[in-house]
Design a protein around this nucleic acid. Sequence first.
RNA 1: GGUCCCGUAGCUCAGUUGGAUAGAGCACCAGAUUCCUAAUCUGGGGGUCGCAGGUUCGAAUCCUGCCGGGAUCACCA
Length: 586
Amino acid sequence: MNLFRYFGNHLRAVLEDLRDQGVLQADADLSRVTVEPPRDTAHGDIATNAAMVLAKKAGMKPRDLAVTIVEGLERLDDIEKADIAGPGFINMTVTSSFWSKILLAALDPGQVWGRSDTGRGEKVLVEFVSANPTGPMHVGHCRGAVFGDALARLLDFAGYDVTREYYINDAGAQVDVLARSAHLRYLEALGEEIGDIPEGLYPGDYLKPVGSAAVEKFGDRYRGAVESEWLPEFRDFSISMMMDMIRDDLEALNIRFDSFFSERSLKEGKVNSIDDAIAEMRQMGLIYEGTLPPPKGKKPDDWDEREQTLFRATDFGDDVDRALAKADGSHTYFAADIAYHRDKIRRGFSTLIDVLGADHSGYVKRMKAAVRALSDDTVKLDVKICQLVHLLRGGKPVKMSKRSGSFITLREVVDEVGADVVRFIMLYRKNDASLDFDFDRVQEQSKDNPVFYVQYAHARIHSVLYRRLPDEFPGLDMGQIDPVREDLALLDDPGEILLIKKLAEYPRIVEQAANTHEPHRIAFYLYELASELHTHWNRGTEKPELRFISVGNRKVTGARAVLLGAIATTIASGLGILGVHPVEEM
RNA sequence: GGUCCCGUAGCUCAGUUGGAUAGAGCACCAGAUUCCUAAUCUGGGGGUCGCAGGUUCGAAUCCUGCCGGGAUCACCA
């Protein structure tokens, strides 16, 4: 149950009544009316701006209109009172009995708490990671991987039909380099002395197993053979091994894909989809032959002005038109990506999400332009750029040099701190802000560390719910309490009410996070919820009567167990969206 | 030089798609443990929301122009 939607519907009914009575204009715009928690909880439980938004058109002062709306609202059973404040806000206070409904909803076995149908089954494709299949995942891929996966989980939870896809860049020159590097390792595995890895090939040791595997597969058939004979075989073979390795790395982070889409498949089908896409766009008048101006202010030394095949990206919001063919006539990466996105559109997705690294920020406009052009603006493309992660150890930057091959792999990070920590920290920040990841800090067991803090709240609840008290309450299993049989009206302490109110926000947070494609909102909410729990927990230090286990009072203890159960359910649910495991013991 | 992102407390960051007196954590200061986990909690000080205009009942939030930081800039992927 979404509290704000619930009362939003109430409010809407009241406003429609007023419209029928002629108080509001027949065409009054109700879409700007919001129903949300007031900033200051002292104002009440729910606030609406309805009177302020609608007053002008109704020819009334906001406060006068508010009086009329309040009359309607106060007729509702769940509303204790409605006040008018400031320029015309209406603050509603919910009856205390209403809060019990929240707890019952949270623990209702017939529905999933927090799940939303806001997505209405709409098909969404989340493309993320898409790292080149030329080596293991390194730490730079980590954030996008976690972000994309959490976003997919979030959208799924919010009622979208989500597909997670990995685009394999297996068609460019880099996979030929991979094949040559693997071939060299193959010769090495055959016992040849290969010396230093030549400039331009991948030096990493991770290719040694590929070399050995190639010996098993091919024998010495390709020793001394000309490159044109072995290159295609070695390319396919090593890409496949690299993808296996990448899948393993992702698995370690608790990430799985629904689909892997090969760039090469665009060219190798019955029809070449890249040519086909270009032909289609040409027919639509989206393509011309022309020359581009050099970049303003910074003319590259080797600027070669020539005629190119160009997409009219500027007609769709881009800054310049974009080249589809290289000097040698082959397709640009962008051309392939256009064909790929056309394929996504044709598969019937109504929303596309691309999760990219910061180095692709310059790519956003052209891709949006392409999707607009190809879908006649019917398909939305949202590009989420994940900014850089700065690795630190004890506050000092961790040095990395990709050139020497000594970069830090994703697997090393996961092995050191654990997938749950990596995931939570990466999600405890907006995707478009850069992030510091300090190996020491993220493993601290203190409130300094948000992962720990939230996990600890869950473990604390677990310690109560699974406590056996044979002397106090023989036969009572707090983890098995049936909420509908408890007297929830006993939860009347202000601290308890605050906790329930915090719980009540959860469904709304889920919807907001899903609508904005911002999973970090879930992480921050969980931190706040954990904080409220710890606060209330410690009230029991000075006031023993507030402890969750109320000695000698089975009814109060039962009601509080329901509250704890609802909080634990919410924490576990939110962590589930983030792909983090709730722990029961620390 | 163009484009995109960022700029909020000493530091790291939230900020409910335009709402009321702008919030957390860290750090600093002062406190709480016969008690369900003190791995926690309570209180305190700390702000020109980068700057200047504009839009309106109302702006940290939207628009324009500046300033500062980062990423990126035909033909690589």
